[in-house]
């Protein structure tokens, strides 16, 4: 598996940072504009898959290890469940939004129907956790499949 031509690699190099910025923008503004953790995570994972297709699987595996992807995915899932359990301790029930209206980080009070980046309680934090989980999960699927194919081609050729 040799990767694609120079034109494709150059265009992928140029557009990769913009795809990453757009995906993280969707994750960070998930409680204000259309989007959220799942959608932004899918955008960022698509950018990473673009790099994997433009170069080859070995080029990616020198930079990102599969165990790191597993760690990131578990970290996202654990922080998601931990935030939900903090609702029992500080709030009323599982998944209760205990941060809203407390004037702390992400706890601003929305003024007459206008939320901003600082309101939302635990929703932005959960967006980040789920975004991390979706980035690592979706990219790990394509990563493992690409490694399987490249190993098989190496065996045949």
């Amino acid at each position: 598996m040799k990767g694609m031509s120079l034109i494709v690699r150059t265009i992928a190099n140029i557009s990769f940072p913009f795809i990453l910025i757009y995906g993280f923008y969707i994750i960070a503004h998930g409680h204000l504009t259309p989007g959220g953790g799942f959608q932004g995570g899918a955008v960022v994972a698509s950018g990473l898959v673009l790099m994997l297709i433009a170069y080859n699987a070995e080029w990616i595996s020198q930079r990102i290890k599969e165990s790191h992807l597993s760690i990131f995915e578990s970290l996202g899932a654990l922080s998601f469940v931990l935030l939900a359990f903090l609702g029992i301790i500080f709030g009323t029930a599982f998944f209760s939004n205990f941060l809203v209206g407390t004037e702390s980080l992400f706890g601003g009070i929305p003024l007459d129907g206008a939320a901003n980046i600082n309101t939302g309680g635990i929703i932005p934090l959960m967006n980040f956790a789920v975004g991390l989980k979706v980035i690592a999960g979706l990219f790990a699927i394509v990563y493992v499949m690409a490694h399987f194919i490249s190993k098989k081609e190496g065996k045949i050729a």
């Binding site: 998930g30 409680h31 204000l32 504009t33 259309p34 989007g35 959220g36 939004n97 809203v100 209206g101 706890g107 601003g108 009070i109 929305p110 129907g113 206008a114 939320a115 309101t119 939302g120 309680g121 929703i123 967006n127």
Partner: peptide, 12 residues
């Protein structure tokens, strides 16, 4: 908006 502080109803 009053209960969750999020403008996006679907995310809320």
């Amino acid at each position: 908006v009053e209960e969750t502080g999020a403008s996006n109803g679907v995310t809320a």
